[in-house]
Design a protein around this nucleic acid. Structure first.
Ligand SMILES: [Mn+2]
Ligand SMILES: [Mn+2]
Ligand SMILES: [Zn+2]
Ligand SMILES: [Zn+2]
Lengths: 146, 146
DNA sequence: AGCTAATTGCAATATTGTTGCATTTAGCCT
DNA sequence: AGGCTAAATGCAACAATATTGCAATTAGCT
């Protein structure tokens, strides 16, 4: 919900502006990653103009608050679809249809922390992207996954 | 070793050219991620000029062969420091000094695969970046990690 | 309603990435 | 060793993405 993001935004002392609400709305509606200029384009088709600088700055802010993420695979931005996963953001990216599913798992985090600990590394944040095939694409075109 | 990468390169039917060797050497020497233009700059200080297009194309190739990776955190490229980890590339990134340590773990992969399977997702590749503090930075400035 | 720090838009610039095509070259074959 | 050719490079032009400083606007407060 856009409303939830707005709450977080304000809880951190940021203002709720029209541009920020518009960007949040676009991210909310799109399950696939969007570039800053994608967002600008989508808004333009609705008669809403935002300067790209504003969009960049908004996305920066949202990423800092973990309300959005930048995907490694595409470089585009996507809304964080989970709450209270501070420090753990995991994505399954279908290499066929591009669909993205975010998930989180405390046990996985724990195991990863332990593993890194062996190197003397103290983990604060976990970020991962698994690429493969979503259930639909796997069923439809199993040969792709050979 | 640059030599190892060259072998992989040739095993896939690609030519070993001067530009490719130069890029491999630069990646080999630098433990931190470099952008294409960084690489060009480094080479220039040695009197070696490479067109940026060539560097882009070389990095593309190296990434496709899993001889290099593009880091999520910085966007820069870094040499893959492990062999035979086809489909699994994990990094610990020190948020203080920027040092990067690559590692891999089959068990972790298995658990992640199983987890994704619950969503009907068939995982092919694992990519992850953990950010935190390397042993040195953690010792020196424990307050940073609070 | 008025105040003010935060935010936005604008303009200019910088950086990063792509494409088509002529030239060069690595690896192979005499 | 010298020639052949597909692969790779460099160049030029362009396209897309990203950053900065500053003046104008505005959200959230009193
Ligand atoms: Mn998230
Ligand atoms: Mn690797
Ligand atoms: Zn799919
Ligand atoms: Zn460190």
């Amino acid at each position: 919900m856009v409303q939830d993001s707005i709450r977080v935004l304000q809880a951190h002392g940021h203002k709720l502006t029209k541009p920020r609400r518009l960007v949040l709305e676009v991210l909310e509606e799109n399950e696939k990653p969007l570039s800053p200029y994608d967002i600008q384009g989508i808004l333009r088709t609705r008669g809403k103009y935002l300067n790209h600088v504003t969009i960049y700055r908004t996305l920066d802010l949202l990423c800092n608050l973990n309300l959005a993420h930048r995907m490694l695979s595409s470089g585009g931005f996507i809304k964080c679809s989970l709450d209270s996963t501070e420090g753990c953001h995991r994505f399954m990216v279908c290499q066929n249809c591009g669909a993205i599913q975010e998930f989180a798992d405390k046990e996985l985090c724990q195991e990863e922390n332990d593993f890194a600990q062996n190197f003397g590394f103290h983990t604060e944040h976990h970020l991962s992207e698994f690429s493969g095939f979503c259930s639909q694409c796997y069923r439809k075109q199993p040969q792709l996954a050979e």
